[in-house]
Design a protein around this nucleic acid. Sequence first.
DNA 1: GAAGTACGAGAAATCGATTTCGTCAAGAGT
DNA 2: ACTCTTGACGAAATCGATTTCTCGTACTTC
Lengths: 326, 326
Amino acid sequence: MATIYEVAALAGVSPATVSRVFNGRTVSPEKQRLVLDAAARLAFTPNKTARRLRKRSSEIIALLIPDIENPFYTALARGVEDRAQEAGFSVVLCNTDDDPAKELRYLGIAASEEMAGVILSPASDEVDLGAIVSLGRPVVAVDRTTPYPVDAVKIDNRAAGIAATTALVDAGFQRIACIAGPLGIESTEDRFLGWRQVVAARGIDVREGYLRHANFRVDGGHAAMKALLALDAPPDAVVTTNNLMAVGALRALAEAGVSLDAFGLAVVGELPDLVLAPATVTQVRLPARHLGTTAAQMLLERIAGDAQPLRTVVLRADVIPAPPVG
Amino acid sequence: MATIYEVAALAGVSPATVSRVFNGRTVSPEKQRLVLDAAARLAFTPNKTARRLRKRSSEIIALLIPDIENPFYTALARGVEDRAQEAGFSVVLCNTDDDPAKELRYLGIAASEEMAGVILSPASDEVDLGAIVSLGRPVVAVDRTTPYPVDAVKIDNRAAGIAATTALVDAGFQRIACIAGPLGIESTEDRFLGWRQVVAARGIDVREGYLRHANFRVDGGHAAMKALLALDAPPDAVVTTNNLMAVGALRALAEAGVSLDAFGLAVVGELPDLVLAPATVTQVRLPARHLGTTAAQMLLERIAGDAQPLRTVVLRADVIPAPPVG
DNA sequence: GAAGTACGAGAAATCGATTTCGTCAAGAGT
DNA sequence: ACTCTTGACGAAATCGATTTCTCGTACTTC
């Protein structure tokens, strides 16, 4: 790797001039050419590390998400990466596993690596963003929000919950239960509130035990559905507040031999693969990739120096309704 | 962010001594304590950028894969990340979209960012690894190999193809077609060779058109399956050489109203979600995550200075057989 | 007891780019 | 004609850690 000094020597100019050529400052066309020729001959690439040390910032953004194996976050990550790449930024992906300790560790890395900014889906309300924020690094919260004053991009989760539930009501189901995520996570709470709003408004019979809080994963959905089916008066339809729990629920239904012709299922989120899902499942398609591109866009604007007041962008979800009960 | 100089001043020692404390060199216990106290009081974190400039290497490894939205690569990425994190390394994830130009760009970034090493699934045989290799950066090829002299971790693809095909033969199918990936990609070619070996060995009737090359995605599998079903003598079973093409094939079968009770399908790879897949599909489970951890392990050993001869590790796939035809 | 060894620790060089500062020359303004 | 402005560009400082070099003290060893 050639350095700026070697290029300068070959071109017969000072290192400062070489730097100016590569940073778009005022340099005479003639020296400009000399430098570019020399740089080309030496296959010169500026050393990013040295530049970063001086500029105190890099072209890297950190993306902290709970789990890259969840297709929702995969799509989100893809969106972030696409937008970042257009702007010449690289993305470092960090799985927090919803563990505040891991999250904190990664935030520390982002700071000491002098990354340009952070996009994160906070593991809890207690994330300590104080350190990076006070360093002046822009932060964008995505999918979930935080008490810290940072930009945010989220989904209209209550509307998504309402849409999922309404689809089941419209399809003629009478006893609609809800498998919600753990308490304390805003996105899933809003979705569950959407469910509650609809069943209350429509005067739907909600028995004891029709609301179940489970962990966010397949096993949680599975256990919750088993419990629902074991009730004296089991529901005839269920709303789940995320995709993985729906997979678990489907598995439980299959094990119990319950046909989806007579049992309604609506998911806030997309099942891992649309094709293989029974057509009778209602899915609320979350704009995951768009969430990512939007967040990246906002972050890039902040990195570029945009100082407008904090923004929260709310994206709306699409509904893919199931056909009415035959 | 406090610097090493401030810590040194507060502790009453030289910056060199502070550095030695943080790098496990010989320092008297007494000064050690002074330094640690001062560092704690100032909440000192060593600046990684400055360190990297001096050491000419960072604790970051680049992972170049075709597409993070493919669950196979997601699992692989997760494996890499888990292992890397244990060793205190961060992973930068790069989607190449199987585009050699993007791949080259990312390799350039890896070099100029002074990343510690690269794990990649080459987009083509023509990747130019010359630059990084000559820089002395370790590289590990994963899932696919390259002509360059680098370590590799791959799957026994031929065995996987054989296993998938054998499962169909054993289940009693007579006319077994193959939907293979594009020519020129080693992994899929080996799988298809496995199919050919089995059908040849068992004297199975392979009609004209029973081998189809498609792109690696859902639409490719869909089109190929449609074409197969449109043959005068359509097959009664199909092997697909990756997961996404199987999804496309399933969709085509569903559209054509073909029941999976009478039609065999074997996939090299796992369907996006096992639960929702018909139980009659044979899947060859690829150890994607393990591939990732193994590759990361090898890379970390090289980074640590391991100079043993080049290694190629071949991992074996598991078969999840479908039940015999009823 | 003299010479040799070992080790702790400070001063200063180093990594490679960016940026401030200052100089010099050419063109503008009065 | 003389000052003022402007712009190109080189010298040198700077970013913050690591790593030689070097020196001085303490400890062996014969």
